[in-house]
Amino acid sequence: MVFGKGTPLLAGAVIAACVVLLGPSAPGDALFGRSQPVDAVKDVVSNRVMTWNLCNPCETSDVDRAAEIARYAPQVIGLQEACVRDVESIRDHLENLHGLVYHVEYGSVLRNWGRCGGAPWSPGGYGQALLSAAPMTDRVNVEYPDGGSEDRGYLAVTTTVGGRSVRVFNTHLAERRQEAVRAKQTGVLAAAVARHDRAIVIGDFNATPDAPELTPMWELAADADPQCHPAPGSCETTTDWQSKFDYVFLRDVARLDHRVRHSPYSDHDLLLADVG
């Protein structure tokens, strides 16, 4: 290729045009520093809580899971059937892709290679997790004395929702057709909840609202849906098999709004509640 006398001038013009279009390249600039969040969310909804059973094992991308959460930007998120590695990945995607920063506490109740991968001699942790935009304190992780066909438990923390301190519980009860086991688990959970004047209890209870084993919870707290009662057909379903298994129970916490949002990434819907 042959360059004429005007080549330096032409090159300078091209460089100048690039600077105008792309901006300066000083250290820390977006072009050469960290990438900007995609579809960044300015802030979380400070009085919104959410519960979601992730479905495990399921072939689902953590990028997609994070996008589902970011769509509603809750202050507190309770996850069940959660692998530690997946939760770490979801948290990173929430921050890097959506500008949402969360603290995380884990409530693993077993280590399972089949569900969570890892080395056969060091499988990944599996159980519950809580993400909160505010710091969490006084973490308690309890494994139920009898988990049924699989170890189960609850995770509890103190954090801030709607500008007020509240105790938050996240649980996953024994699988369907294990009513007697769930009854014992609910007794353990209800005793812990009863020690707190204000509490939010979220999770997958694997039981419909009229199930006898949920009676201790109904005696302590109300569903975030004012139309939902321990009676058949009074509550919106939260699973692909058209049952309500997922709950946001409120103890001395005002209920303002609730919604169930179907997700293609799990066999459970996202359940959200705005509280006062």
Rank of each mutant, 00 (worst) to 15 (best):
V2H: 14
F3W: 15
G6S: 15
G6Y: 10
L9N: 11
L9P: 03
A11T: 14
G12R: 11
A17E: 03
A17R: 04
C18Q: 04
C18R: 00
V19H: 01
V19P: 00
P24G: 15
S25D: 14
A26K: 11
D29F: 09
G33D: 07
R34M: 02
Q36R: 14
P37E: 06
D39T: 03
A40Q: 11
V41R: 14
K42L: 08
K42V: 07
D43V: 01
R48W: 08
M50E: 06
M50A: 06
W52G: 02
P57Q: 11
C58I: 10
E59R: 14
T60Q: 09
R65A: 07
A67S: 09
A67D: 07
A70E: 03
Y72R: 06
Y72G: 00
Q75P: 00
G78T: 12
G78F: 11
Q80K: 09
A82R: 03
V84P: 00
V84N: 10
D86S: 14
H93W: 04
N96V: 02
H98L: 02
V109D: 06
L110I: 07
R115F: 13
G117W: 12
G117A: 12
A119I: 06
W121E: 14
S122L: 12
A129K: 00
L131E: 01
A133D: 03
A134P: 06
A134E: 15
M136H: 04
T137L: 05
D138V: 04
D138S: 13
R139S: 08
V140W: 06
V142M: 09
E143F: 04
D146I: 11
G147N: 14
G147H: 12
S149F: 15
E150V: 14
D151S: 15
Y154S: 08
Y154N: 08
T158A: 02
G163N: 00
R167A: 03
V168Q: 07
A174K: 07
E175D: 15
Q178R: 10
A183T: 05
Q185A: 09
G187N: 10
R195D: 11
R195F: 00
H196Y: 13
D197W: 10
D197P: 10
R198H: 14
A199V: 04
G203M: 07
G203Q: 07
P209I: 02
D210M: 03
A211G: 01
A211Q: 03
E213K: 00
L214H: 09
M217V: 08
W218K: 01
E219G: 10
L220A: 03
D225V: 09
Q227I: 01
C228Y: 05
P230S: 09
P230K: 05
P230E: 06
G233N: 05
S234E: 05
C235T: 05
E236T: 13
T237K: 06
D240I: 13
Q242E: 12
S243E: 13
D252P: 04
A254C: 05
A254S: 12
A254L: 07
L256D: 14
V260N: 05
H262F: 08
S263I: 06
S263G: 02
S263K: 03
P264R: 13
S266Q: 08
D267S: 09
L272Q: 02
L272K: 04
A273N: 11
